[in-house]
Nucleic acid binder design. Sequence first.
RNA 1: GCCGCAUUCGUCUAGAGGCCCAGGACACCGCCCUCUCAAGGCGGAGAUCACCGGUUCGAAUCCGGUAUGCGGUACCA
Length: 513
Amino acid sequence: MSLDQRVEPVDPAVRVRIAPSPTGPLHIGTARTALFNYLFARRTGGTFVLRLEDTDVERSTPEFEQDILDGLHWLGLDWDEGPGRGAEPDHGPFGPYRQMQRLARYRAISDRLLAEDLAYYCYCTAAELDAERKRLEAAHLPPRYSGRCAHLTAAERAAFEAEGRRPAIRFRIEPGIVAFDDLVRGHVEIDASALGGDLVIVRAEGTPLYHFCVVVDDAAMKISHVIRGEDHLSNTPKHILLFRALGEAEPLFAHLPLILNPDRTKMSKRKSQTALDDYINEGFIREGLLNYLALLGWSTGSEEEILGLDEIAARFSLEHVQKAGAVFDRERLEWLNGQWIRRLPPAELVDRLRPFVQREADAGRIDGLPADSELQALVPLVQERLPVLGAIGDLVDFLFTDRLVLDPAILVPKRWDGPTTLDGLGAAREALFAIDPAGFQPDRLEEALRALAEARGWKAGDLFMAIRVAVTGRTATPPLFETLAALGQERTIERLDAAIAVLGGPSQERGGS
RNA sequence: GCCGCAUUCGUCUAGAGGCCCAGGACACCGCCCUCUCAAGGCGGAGAUCACCGGUUCGAAUCCGGUAUGCGGUACCA
């Protein structure tokens, strides 16, 4: 088996990172970017770093941070270096891994840029900048900072200070073409004059900004490959200019295609379900999610598609990353998720189903919690019927409730009428009642009911459907005889009696005639 | 507006000049299996490879232009 000649060779010097912002719950797009970084690290024998970009103090919260860390861990995308989860300490030689804990470093570097005149203090207020931008837009010119503060004298600065103005720090964007070779998109050139003028790297209030921190940290953490979403492609020249100003080697860049809403715009909370938690709560499992996400914007280059994390890592290559955005297709996710649920060992499936069964109980949809052994016994009946774990309720709730609600409208099979149904259920009741309790097993039940249908000239399917609805309240259920056996003889008889009553039939004494 | 990137079935994709009047998967339709629902099997429909030119004996694949879409353009990340 010859490996693709173009895959990246094993290179322990590879260092990649995922750098989420704790301003919201873990986003499916962040999860995918994390996955691709993780895969690249695994494939090359490199290091996967996690860094929290929490400089947007207004919107960042410890809860979101926790959610992101937990989500990545849940997916199995554990990081070699980065913050610890919960009480765990940070690990790795390049910490701290939260940007708000790295302020001293940003401060030192912005001071240096200031001293080298690669950056300068800007006293413009938000209102002034806004007015300037509006004027340019009105004149159909691209918004760009005028450079008003680019060459202030000491006296001018003192005057602004005297007014009580606090300065932001701007990085000088020098004219010229910035070019780089993106590992996914090839050669890219952007004219620095299109970058909007000198870039604010530190707020007036003193905290550093994203474009600055990302470069300082990627340099400090020796990141070799920046693998991120395409939405950062246009920002890359700013980063490259910053790397150069810092005297640091630029990393290699790889911009991944965006995950899209159905209308082909960038996937957003407004138009799609973006929080990983929401998928977890529906009962998507990590294997399915990982497999699906890996195939969104990447392929093996062959027709293989159902692959586990290790198999994906063994095949991963940036060469096969797609250039165009990919619409998030929930149907395909569900299919893949079902594939992986079917592959789970029974005991494992029971473990994963537990929280979802618990939820049915919490919601009052079932009256008691089935034991593991009971759940395990149901696995053969439900395993291939679960696109998501959350579907377990609809499949088995009727087994664990004492208050079955019967809809008379579906109690009568399509080809039958009321009297026939009544007749059928009554006859079935007698036949099932006659079975020895010890023999209340699928094979025996099927035998008895088929014999009954034959004797009465009914189509077996019609009889079975009448019993199914009477006993489960549903028209779609796991196989009937296994279901009746799981329910037990006594409850089966009770439910048949209840259905007969609903249809207006004679109420029968317990024990029957 | 300006800058950048992209464009193969509805969707995810294979495809690196002849193997392609384009293959697989999801979804859809039909048949089989079948006690329902699933799962599974088999089959079908579905893409003039965005468009126009060029290079070439030959182009989905190379080149140029056009169109459309998306992304970026913050003292957000």
